[in-house]
């Protein structure tokens, strides 16, 4: 791990839990209200690039994994945010990073995770699709198939 990474973990040690370290991949859990601060530090202070976010449905809720890539060292920093199955809601980082716009729209589309503070939260991939209604999120296990024949 680089010096920048060590500094980062020292600074946020009380906000980060369950760190899994591999040579070039670092996963850790953060709380929903801290994700803005951590994204800000990772992208603006450390100069990481937001690669993408992965949303996953697990047995007790939904989790979103942000992948920040440090292009100088090739290390991935992946903060993980958890939310409930009903009314999933996470703070948006789009006002911070313009590139997160589509990423968050996509997660809203496929998983129904609402991003608080997103400037234009609408569906991305199944938008205007006659087969999918507004609250039909095709990646969820209990899909709301209102329009299915």
């Amino acid at each position: 791990m680089s010096d920048k990474g060590t500094e980062f973990f020292e600074k946020f040690q009380d906000k980060i839990t369950k760190v899994i370290k591999k040579p070039k991949r670092i996963y850790f859990n953060v709380k929903n209200e801290d994700i803005w601060e951590i994204s800000d530090y990772l992208s603006n202070t450390m100069g990481c690039r937001l690669s993408v976010c992965t949303a996953t449905e697990v047995y007790d809720g939904l989790e979103v994994l942000y992948h920040f890539s440090d292009d100088t060292t090739g290390i991935y920093y992946s903060p993980r945010v958890k939310t409930g199955l009903k009314n999933p809601e996470i703070n948006s980082i789009t006002p911070l990073i313009e590139g997160a716009n589509w990423i968050e729209r996509e997660m809203y589309d496929l998983f129904g995770i609402k991003f608080k503070g997103h400037p234009d939260l609408k569906k991305l991939l199944t938008i205007n699709n006659p087969h999918f209604s507004e609250d039909d999120h095709p990646m969820r296990f209990n899909r709301n198939r209102t329009k299915e024949k």
């Binding site: 690669s51 993408v52 992965t54 996953t56 313009e98 590139g99 716009n101 589509w102 990423i103």
Partner: peptide, 15 residues
């Protein structure tokens, strides 16, 4: 696989 997330380059480049 339990979850397989794919991000293609154009996804970041088109916007």
């Amino acid at each position: 696989p339990l979850r397989h997330k794919i991000r293609a380059p154009s996804f970041s480049n088109i916007p």
